[in-house]
Nucleic acid binder design. Structure first.
Lengths: 338, 338
DNA sequence: GTGAAAGCGCTAACAC
DNA sequence: GTGTTAGCGCTTTCAC
């Protein structure tokens, strides 16, 4: 693409330089290192640039500096209500820090996640990977090549922010125990989910400590429909209460129960997780608080800090605490079990 | 940044060229126009590139061609359940067409929308702007400078895909009329929303045609909480049924009504819009179907087509039809009005 | 404090 | 078919 009409395209650094009677280097400096220039020069150049409608071309700048000013967020499912608040927070914080953000949606597919990561790598300065479904070694491989901050995935020696539901889930189990439930169930979430492992483990541990019988129900994913469909299995366990991986699943359970004319919480107690539905279910769901927006903000802070210090790799591990939010979907164990 | 350690960084086109004993142009062609090369050359170059772990640098390519291979989606509020399915569809379709996507969240703020648009402009080949809150002239200004496809915003001479709720809302009003309601209300949505104007207009027109008394309630935004808070005003109108701008608002109304011991649909009928909640409310909401995912896909098709044909501006105007989905939140008018 | 010049990695006339 | 060459728009030594 040699030669181009002179007065044609957008103004470039050269246009401004010519107009201001200075060199292109000076114009460049006026924008990137004003302090190395005489104040009046800066002022004049900037004024002219303004008048000409000039703006730095981020691509050219990126090619030259090796830094794009872009970040990427990777999520398994943007339609899951857990993520939007986090994405929003990430967008906002990244914006404040001067970054634009790419959104990558993996559709819960590890292979796709891997692909998107490598495809985007050349265009961004760093990644926030939320609830990664990749294997630990795949995560490691990417983190070695590019700055990465994980959310809700605990891989040693990679920066991560974890919403720690241990406390909240512990309270949930104890809440149930105190209400007199002796037999409870846990309905699981996505297979490769770190959060799911953590929650399942906690329910098991605390349940045993309190002498409860706890049944683990597998649950490949998180969705309202899956929760609804799990009800027969749930009832078959003989449990009088359930803790679900998240609110979506819990909500589905609420519906499944209602369809069988079981009244919550009179006949059955259900607890969700993440508090994404607020009091919008019927009855309002007892759940474990989450802090997804905070997690997003923290992730960007970690990432941005790391990019500025040009740090190789950080081993930050930020834990965000949770607690039980009691609403109206839990009550004492029914007199006669169903 | 003159000079750099030779064996240092990632392999570039030159590395491959040297290794293959061809010119850089040939390597470039092997990737972008293989048909202009001898098949065996292509094969050899690609093999070597593969072995060296070479991949085209999108930034460099973009700077040279003037096309980034990136698109941007702009939405007012990613946390509104209407958008995620659309964003997901956009991401997916864009990916198929070879584009990566930036996500911009304007937080319902026209000024921010404008800012993000200009900021991203240099990095993307085109925009999908969903439910723009900017003034028509501002929208025009951007559309003149860059390829833009609008979703749910009807500006002449700018490509747009519109989810046309006229049919659905008409059916909603008639449904209510047939159930015997004589006095209804419409709870509005975001001020600058085209969808809101369209729905309000339709309710008014059809209501009058059927001889109903219809009261228009303003509603600055869309949110569960706002719907809940609107209930007192709603009841004060004397209406026996309401059509809300969207499901979120309708859901809030359901709750507000329940809090006043009014049973839906026995004491009051409510209809939502967009069908984003499925049957997840209590009682399941009668609503107007939406087609946000389809809209997203269509928007990308329009945009991609336009970018390929290098068309200046297209005046495509794609309408997506809707219809009423009757569930359980509507019934005959109560005997004695409250 | 400012300019000259080389170069980031790639593409696209234009020649041969 | 393939190489040569001149950029895309910006940053950054190195001089002056």
């Amino acid at each position: 693409m040699p030669t181009r009409a002179p007065g044609a395209g957008k103004p470039t650094i050269s246009t401004v330089a010519a107009e201001a009677g200075v060199s292109r280097a000076t114009v460049s400096r006026a924008f990137s290192q004003p302090h190395r220039l005489k104040p009046e020069t800066v002022e004049r150049v900037l004024a002219i640039a303004q008048r000409l409608g000039y703006a730095v071309n981020p691509m050219a700048k990126a090619l030259s500096t090796g830094r794009s000013g872009n970040l990427a967020v990777v999520v398994p499912d943007i339609a899951n209500p857990f993520f939007p608040p986090m994405i929003r927070a990430i967008e906002q914080r990244a914006d404040q820090a001067g970054y634009a953000v790419f959104l990558a949606h993996t559709n819960e597919d590890p292979a796709r996640e891997d692909l998107l990561l490598t495809r985007l790598a050349k265009q961004v300065d760093g990644f926030v990977i939320a609830s990664s479904r990749m294997t630990e070694s795949a995560v490691r491989a990417h983190a070695e090549r590019h700055p990465v901050v994980l959310v809700n995935r605990d891989v040693a020696r990679i920066a991560r922010v974890l919403i720690d539901t241990t406390a909240g889930v512990t309270q949930a189990v104890e809440h149930l125990a105190e209400l007199g439930h002796r037999q409870i169930a846990y309905l699981g979430g996505p297979n490769r989910s770190w959060s799911n492992s953590q929650r399942r483990r906690t329910v098991k541990r605390v349940g045993e400590r309190r002498g409860l019988t706890v049944t683990m129900l597998p649950g490949r994913l998180s969705s309202y429909e899956l929760g609804r469909q799990a009800v027969p299995d749930l009832l078959a366990t003989g449990a009088t209460a359930v803790i679900a991986f998240d609110d979506l699943l819990a909500h589905g359970i609420l519906t499944g129960l209602a369809e069988r004319d079981l009244v919550v919480p009179r006949d059955f107690s259900v607890i969700g997780c993440d508090d994404v539905l607020g009091a919008q279910t019927y009855p309002p769901l007892t759940t474990v608080s989450s802090r997804s927006a905070e997690a997003g903000t923290a992730a960007i802070d970690l990432l941005a800090g790391r990019l500025e210090n040009d740090a190789r790799s950080s081993d930050d591990r930020l834990l965000l605490d949770t607690s039980l939010v009691v609403r109206a979907s839990t009550a004492s164990v029914p007199r006669k079990r169903r």
